[in-house]
Design a protein around this nucleic acid. Structure first.
Lengths: 127, 127
DNA sequence: TCGATAATTCGACTATATCCGAATTATCGA
DNA sequence: TCGATAATTCGGATATAGTCGAATTATCGA
């Protein structure tokens, strides 16, 4: 399964509202959010579907639909390796979503969203 | 209507998964996301429910349920002013959500989520 | 106190999401 | 080629979300 973005590839801060709704809907589910966070923590190496299912505690077929939803939303990618399919977080898609959420949040009032910047920097202080 | 956080108030980066799912679910809807973004842009002053309904193009009663959902998720606040009820974005709740999403995202690999920091800083460069 | 305006609550209908068991496809090792 | 493992697709049952019209509550001005 390929990562199916809708329409042309967009840069940071240029996500459209329907795409954002799809990404948010994909994450607005306990198991899917757990899967996404697991993959975010797993890094670029990713994890095979079976291990994700075991880790999160979902039946393989149910997980498969969740993975499809996350992939279609541009939040994860997949590649086949032998009998396994390896899933990994799509950091670009994640960045698009976060960028969309903070866009225009504090025009002229930097103090309002300083906590957001702090949160992002706390994520990786050395970046 | 008060902002109904669940359980004790939490600091940045300490949101729990069920709370995050609720916040994401609240935003995972075209009209609600439009309302939230409108309020984020409106700033601390906020907007009365009627104006939001007109702006977004939703019936007042339907909007009311959407506002309740956003409020319960900790993303917006409300205060009464005469006959109007003024709604405004809850930047703290928004920060909690963003912090939750980026938590542990790049342990040891700062380059991965540098774009996220950039996005946040792009939001308010002077903060 | 009364009518008008602002907003919410209620009840019911419709659409959609979610889940599971069973069947199917893809790949590997023997 | 055959059996086993990994993952996905399919079909149907159930639960939940979203919407609307009507009724209700709150506030203001006369």
């Amino acid at each position: 399964m390929l990562c199916a973005r809708h329409g042309p590839q967009r840069g940071l801060l240029l996500m459209l509202l329907p795409e954002a709704v799809e990404a948010l809907s994909a994450l607005a589910h306990g198991h899917r959010l757990a899967v996404f966070r697991l993959l975010v923590r797993a890094g670029a190496g990713g994890l095979p579907a079976g291990e994700i299912a075991r880790e999160v505690g979902v039946l393989p077929n149910t997980l498969s639909t969740h993975l499809t939803i996350l992939g279609h939303a541009g939040l994860i990618r997949s590649r086949r390796e032998g009998r396994s399919v390896i899933y990994s977080a799509d950091y670009g898609g994640m960045g698009d979503l976060l960028g969309f959420l903070v866009a225009d949040c504090c025009a002229g009032r930097p103090e309002i969203c300083a906590p957001l910047v702090e949160a992002a920097q706390g994520c990786c202080p050395s970046a």
